[in-house]
Simulated scan of single mutants.
Amino acid sequence: MVDLSYQAAFTKADRQFTAATEPASINTWHDDIAAAGDAINQWAAKNTLDTAERSKMPPSAAVGKAFAKADRDAENVAKGK
Results as ranks from 00 to 15, higher is better:
10 F>Y: 07
11 T>I: 12
11 T>Q: 12
11 T>H: 09
13 A>T: 10
13 A>C: 07
13 A>Q: 11
14 D>P: 05
17 F>D: 05
18 T>V: 05
18 T>H: 01
18 T>K: 03
18 T>L: 03
18 T>I: 03
19 A>R: 11
20 A>R: 07
20 A>K: 09
20 A>T: 06
21 T>Q: 05
22 E>Y: 05
22 E>V: 09
22 E>D: 09
25 S>E: 02
25 S>R: 01
26 I>Y: 01
26 I>N: 01
30 H>Q: 13
31 D>L: 09
31 D>H: 11
32 D>I: 01
35 A>T: 05
35 A>G: 04
36 A>H: 00
37 G>R: 06
37 G>T: 01
38 D>Q: 14
39 A>S: 04
40 I>L: 15
41 N>I: 13
41 N>Y: 11
42 Q>C: 11
43 W>V: 03
44 A>W: 09
45 A>S: 13
46 K>N: 12
48 T>F: 06
48 T>K: 05
49 L>D: 12
49 L>T: 12
49 L>P: 13
50 D>Q: 13
51 T>R: 15
54 R>L: 14
56 K>P: 10
56 K>F: 10
58 P>A: 15
59 P>N: 09
60 S>Y: 10
60 S>A: 13
62 A>K: 08
64 G>V: 04
65 K>G: 10
65 K>R: 10
66 A>L: 02
66 A>P: 00
68 A>E: 07
68 A>H: 04
71 D>G: 01
71 D>H: 02
76 N>P: 05
76 N>D: 10
80 G>A: 01
81 K>E: 05
81 K>N: 14
